[in-house]
Amino acid sequence: MTEELLEVRLRVNGVAHDLRVPARRLLSDALRHDLGLTGTHVGCEHGVCGACTVLADGRPVRACLMFAVSAVGLELTTVEGLADVDGTLSNVQQAFAECHGLQCGFCTPGFLTTITAGLRDNPQPTHDEARDMIAGNLCRCTGYQNIVKAVERAAELGAGETS
């Protein structure tokens, strides 16, 4: 028996994409496999690690927990959409590079999208608020200290803006 495909239009990084997907296609799978946006990483597939975090109407969501059909009508931003079209890094991306906020890089896209949204809500976080901002994302390599430094550096550079 063949699963019925639904026609959906997803707006991702400012571009509309028409897809035919099964009703239970996860947003993470639609982004990675149907659209080729492999920056959205899938770690735990249970919404725990945060590697799959994307922005939906500017709010962080776990793409491994959301069906693609549920994202219709939302403006989605993946890690690929954080930089300017000319390739200029966002201040969050620049801060990560400056502060060595990544090691293996697997969790980085989820941190970048989470922090981008967090700094929009709180552009000048305290040290504790910066730590709280990333509390829902897991990293196995860095020990988090440089990620917190990157949050604080991004705030200095101007949250959510490009450099």
Results as ranks from 00 to 15, higher is better:
Glu4Ala: 05
Glu4Lys: 02
Leu5Gln: 00
Glu7Trp: 03
Arg9Gly: 09
Leu10Met: 07
Val12Pro: 07
Gly14Ile: 13
Val15Trp: 03
Val15Cys: 04
His17Asn: 14
His17Arg: 13
Asp18Trp: 13
Leu19Lys: 11
Pro22Thr: 14
Arg24Ser: 10
Leu26Thr: 13
Leu26Met: 15
Leu27Phe: 05
Leu27Trp: 02
Ser28Ala: 15
Ala30Gln: 04
Leu31Gln: 06
Arg32Gly: 09
Leu35Val: 06
Gly36Ala: 07
Gly39Pro: 08
Gly43Ile: 08
Gly47Trp: 01
Ala51Arg: 02
Ala51Pro: 01
Cys52Asp: 14
Val54Gly: 02
Leu55Gln: 02
Ala56Met: 15
Asp57Asn: 15
Gly58His: 06
Arg59Trp: 10
Val61Lys: 00
Arg62Phe: 07
Cys64Val: 06
Cys64Asn: 00
Phe67Gln: 14
Phe67His: 12
Ala71Asn: 08
Leu74Thr: 11
Glu80Tyr: 13
Glu80Arg: 14
Gly81Pro: 06
Ala83Met: 02
Ala83Arg: 12
Asp84Thr: 14
Val85Gly: 15
Gly87Val: 10
Gly87Trp: 10
Leu89Ser: 05
Gln93Asn: 09
Ala97Met: 12
Ala97Gln: 14
Glu98Trp: 06
Cys99Lys: 15
Cys107Asp: 09
Cys107Arg: 09
Thr108Lys: 05
Thr108Ala: 10
Pro109His: 03
Pro109Tyr: 01
Phe111Trp: 00
Phe111Gln: 03
Leu112Asp: 01
Leu112Pro: 01
Gly118Ile: 02
Arg120Trp: 00
Asn122His: 05
Gln124Gly: 01
Pro125Gln: 03
Pro125Asp: 01
Thr126Gly: 12
Thr126Phe: 07
Thr126Arg: 10
His127Arg: 15
Asp128Ala: 15
Arg131Ile: 03
Met133Lys: 06
Ile134Tyr: 01
Gly136Val: 06
Gly143Cys: 12
Gly143Trp: 08
Gln145Asp: 15
Val148Ser: 07
Val148Ala: 11
Val151Tyr: 03
Glu152Asn: 03
Arg153Cys: 11
Glu156Trp: 04
Leu157Thr: 11
Gly158Leu: 08
Ala159Glu: 09
Glu161Ile: 06
Ser163Gly: 14
